[in-house]
Simulated assay, not measured.
Amino acid sequence: MTTSNLDISQFDHTPFYCEENVYMLCKKLGMIGMADAEGSDLFAVFISNEKKQVPLWHQKASKRADGIILWDYHVICIQKKKEGSSPPQVWDLDSSLPFPSHLDHYMSDSFRPSFQLFSDYQRFFRIVHAPLFLHSFASDRRHMKNSDGNWISPPPAQDPIVADDGSLYNLDEYIRMNAADAVTQVKDDTISAVFTQKYGVLVRESQLEEFFSLLSG
């Protein structure tokens, strides 16, 4: 199967549950041979900031023509294949852009880097290696219930995700982002850390493409 004949409808997608969508996506890409079976060429990338308000364009949930929406956080999957020289690709089930999109195109269209943002809207990126994510992530969906215990948005059909260690909920650890925790430079130890640290590494928007360019092909 190639990306040219991919049908996006074959992938599980529940609006407003991007973290679970990416979890299921990573598994599916390995199952259908579009990624390494263990997901070793995939990365779950959480996008947020201290204020929990990050603008993205070309999002299906938007009610505007340009597709802009202010998310409290968003999650995408980035693939960097080990063989060949193919560029990193972004898989975003919530985007109206091509599925998948090359990372540089996705960034220019979704993040509009020339658009000057106030500091409250600066985006940070937590890069988590997919095998670690698939073993460690957990969500009982408590964040999607209001104070009365009712769903803010209908949940996915599948059971809630339980981590291998039995954890029921740790989404907050993935989306907690402080500027002080971001790496100052993308170096060899930054690359090494993403393959060993449960919650990955935190980088600034200007460092995202650099990070994936330094991954060994």
Rank of each mutant, 00 (worst) to 15 (best):
P113E: 09
F115I: 05
M144L: 11
S86V: 15
H13D: 10
R123T: 05
M24S: 07
L70Q: 13
S40A: 13
T184D: 13
E173Q: 05
S101M: 03
E209L: 15
M31I: 09
S9H: 13
S167T: 12
A179Q: 10
Q122P: 01
W57K: 12
Y121T: 09
D41V: 06
W91K: 08
L56Y: 08
A180Y: 13
S192M: 05
A138W: 05
H58D: 12
Q53V: 14
G200A: 03
G39M: 11
I161G: 00
A157M: 12
H58A: 10
S62M: 09
D140H: 04
D41C: 00
K63F: 01
F211I: 08
A157C: 06
K28S: 06
D181H: 03
E50I: 05
E210N: 15
I8W: 01
S136N: 14
T2M: 10
I175D: 08
Q122G: 00
S147D: 11
Y73A: 03
D148W: 04
R64P: 08
S62Y: 09
N178M: 01
V203R: 05
E205T: 07
R204F: 07
D66I: 09
Y17L: 08
D140I: 02
Q207G: 03
I161V: 12
M144N: 10
S96N: 12
Y17Q: 07
I8F: 00
F43S: 08
F99Q: 03
G217P: 11
V54N: 05
N49Y: 02
V203I: 07
Y106C: 04
E83V: 11
L132A: 00
K187W: 03
N146E: 04
D41G: 01
I68L: 08
D66W: 09
F115D: 10
I32D: 06
Q79E: 15
V162M: 01
F133Y: 14
G67E: 03
A44G: 10
Y169N: 00
S213W: 13
I69C: 03
V54K: 02
S114C: 01
H13A: 02
D92C: 13
T190N: 09
S136K: 08
K82F: 14
F125T: 05
D120Q: 15
R176W: 10
L208D: 08
A35Y: 03
W91I: 06
L56F: 07
W71P: 04
Q207K: 08
G67T: 01
H74K: 00
V183C: 12
N178E: 09
Y23P: 00
L117F: 14
S96M: 14
F11N: 00
G67V: 03
L93D: 03
A157P: 05
K145E: 06
P87M: 14
D36K: 11
L42Y: 05
D92K: 10
H129D: 07
M177K: 04
P88I: 00
R112C: 09
L134N: 04
Y199D: 00
D120K: 15
G200N: 04
E209K: 15
S48L: 04
H135F: 12
D140T: 05
P131Q: 01
V203L: 02
G67N: 13
Y174T: 01
F124N: 07
S153C: 10
C18S: 11
A35K: 01
S167C: 11
F212T: 06
N150M: 07
P98M: 12
Q59V: 11
A193K: 11
L29V: 06
H135I: 13
